[in-house]
Design a protein around this nucleic acid. Sequence first.
RNA 1: GUGGGUGUAGCUCAGCUUGGUUAGAGCGCCUGGUUGUGGUCCAGGAGGCCGGGGGUUCAAGUCCCCUCACUCACCCCA
Length: 455
Amino acid sequence: MPAADVTPPSGTRDLFPADVLLRRRTFAAIQDTFERHGFEPLDTPAFERLDVLTGKYGEEGEQLIFRILRRGEHAASGEADLALRYDLTVPLARVVARYGSQLPSPFKRYQIASVWRADRPGRGRFREFTQCDIDVAGASSLVADASVVLALIDALAAIGLEGVTVHLNDRDALHGLVAAYGIPEALGASALTALDKLAKIGPDGVADELRARGVADDAVAALHADLSAADPTAAIVARVRSDARGRVGLDRIAELMALLPAEAGVDVVHDPVLARGLGYYTGPVFELTHPALDASIAAGGRYDGLIGMFGDEPVPAVGGSLGLERILLILAEQQGLEAGGAGPGPDVLATVLDPADAADILAVAVRLRSAGIGVDVYSGEGRMKKQLRHADRRGARFALVRGATERAAGSVTLKELTSGEQTTLSEEEAVRFLRGRLAEAGGRDGGRDGGRTDG
RNA sequence: GUGGGUGUAGCUCAGCUUGGUUAGAGCGCCUGGUUGUGGUCCAGGAGGCCGGGGGUUCAAGUCCCCUCACUCACCCCA
């Protein structure tokens, strides 16, 4: 029988102690920021009924839903009836549709959780990843849109990510753009996809793409001219303004930008060709980028129609998500963090020199722990040399030795691993000593932000 | 799904162009350097169907074909 492949499925990761601790600190900072902005936590199941997810993300997105086959007697049918959640927005919409009357209105909620996409993995792209999602359900005011953007920016600042740009656009402005350049409605979505690539392939590339997608020559020529202008945004905006619906979108963008306070230090730009893939957006859409990554690190927008798909009443809503893995990728590169290391060790690692001492050492450990000191009792076998090496690698502050000599004297020997200094004290003295020394160091993984993970 | 690249020790890789003795390095790992002392140092050691299959050849890690995996770009996305 061949050995099983023990690598995790592509697009997923095993997280080692240092990774988990860094993520935990990051979560805590983001969560804290969201709560200070008035968002409340919510949790939903990892999987949903399939029909809750279908018809929400557009054709492209629909292909990427991880489906779960029917089980039991229906397994042979090969059909799926459940699916892993694709994002956190649709589950929220379902919750609002189901419990709306019991929830505050507007309902501001955050959720930090894994989502799954049957995608081809790549750099900064996973099949299982964590979204930090915030939404405001039941508010049509642009104050809600602004609040979402500000909370996301603040959360990024809280974890030390600087240099983020907000790219803003509006679905109505996009419709206006399509109409203003005389692109047939049916080609609209396709044309916008091509336009969205402007930053990557330039005006010429966009023109080629547009032609390939069947856009008429005069429309392509007009767009190419505007995209090549000294100020492409101004040129496109001028054209979009000629369309009534486009005007609605442009005005909304201006209004939203005016709501973002200068004090927040947000770098916002209007990007008239920003499209966003998800099907459910209706008004403002935005994307957050960072120079270190070729993909967005956060995105969101207004989706006034989504919740209504689940119930009788339409409920306006707006939200956005941070992509945690992408953010950690950037932070890791900026701060030179190494993945896969060990976490911070225990305060004290107690050696067991002779198996016959085990009961005595475990009892000492219990007493020290009840005095508030973290103690790990060595649980393998081996000579002192090996146990001290283990203590060192685990990053323990102190090693505790209590063999026959100490036991006879009712004492313990404590060795500080960094300095190599050691002293033999009574247990009471040891508690006082350890409390003092551990307090000087500022305790364990609290208090530090920015995520240092040396090991 | 289309094109390019890479698969050799636990990890990072050399060797392949110009087939030819026991396939190497660094790091890591293990064991010693006498009694109960780690992180440094010294000395030893373990570990490789050279991704898999087929072919050419007296001979293949090295050349050819197929296949799988990973990876970059396209596409799409947090």
